[in-house]
Amino acid sequence: MTAALLIEYVIKSGIILIGMTIGFAYVTYYERKALARIQTRIGPNRAGPWGILQPIADAVKLIFKEEFVPAKSDKLLFLLAPVITVIPALIITAVVPWGRSVTLFGRQIHLYLADVNVGILYLGAVASIAVYGIVLAGWSSNNKYAMMGGLRSTAQMISYELALGLSFVSVTLLAGSMSLVDIVETQGAHGFLGWIVWNLSQPLGFIIFLIAGMAETNRSPFDMPEAEQELTAGYHTEYSGMKFALFFMAEYIKIIAISMIASTLFLGGYLGPFVDKIPWLGPIYLFIKTIIMVFVFIWVRATFPRFRYDRLMAFGWKVLLPLAFLNMFIAGIITVLVGG
């Protein structure tokens, strides 16, 4: 490994980490604006032009808030839980490609941090770590509501991660690879028509992925772990200031991550018109697709009320899981017919 390669990786990692953090700030703004418009309000528009400085104002406020630690909490776990939640969210998009390769300063640079040949497994694995943070937060707070939120989170994750994993499996079957770069390239292999066929073969998979992704990120209508009306604030009841912000950071970064993964697996990722001639269009296409997917998340939150807890479990096990199996079956048949 040469020094230049090392620097390249450091820069790419930095871009992901900083991009995700800024992305988090602006997804909160985007959500507030979009929710406001859906509810025929205007949304934040005071801090800076159109309120674009609102996330910075929020961050400053949260930094200066009191960091409260409950007296009978498990101090170490209490401090560790937000960190455990936020780190997987930050690193999950490392395998998501943003584009093909570009030539910069006489070097050919691939527009992805890592092309892991088990990329999809990496996504599944890292996405599940975050639940530890939530459970530990619930446990260490020594608060019944937090505990309930943490427990709900575990049960929900187990039920929905299966469906999520199975929707990954069908994509893997169709692409014949677990690398996200290969999956995107397979979608674009036969031009626009090939991409349409890819999507028509996977509408069920896409919907299952979206639903499971919403459950995975604890988004409404699956926000059982933090159900305000039942559990005050769920697992982050006892958290304040920046530690609380870290939980929110994890949630919103995971929204971005799930949106990026959904665009990559089902919507062609960085592919788009002229992307083979101008490789810099790749990240722009991915960005646009991600923004649209994030909007879907916000839109669903604005529309649907929270599930009742038993129905949430029943939906996960009795509807989503069989559908995911069916989808995998369809993907398998297609693979055999087309010839993989």
Partner: peptide, 22 residues
């Protein structure tokens, strides 16, 4: 029914906001 719900919320996005900029 889910689709109708989503359509309703999407349609509301294009209505004039009722907020008065106090």
């Amino acid at each position: 029914e889910l689709g109708r719900g989503l359509w309703t919320t999407l349609r509301m996005m294009f209505e004039k906001p009722v907020t008065i900029q106090y």
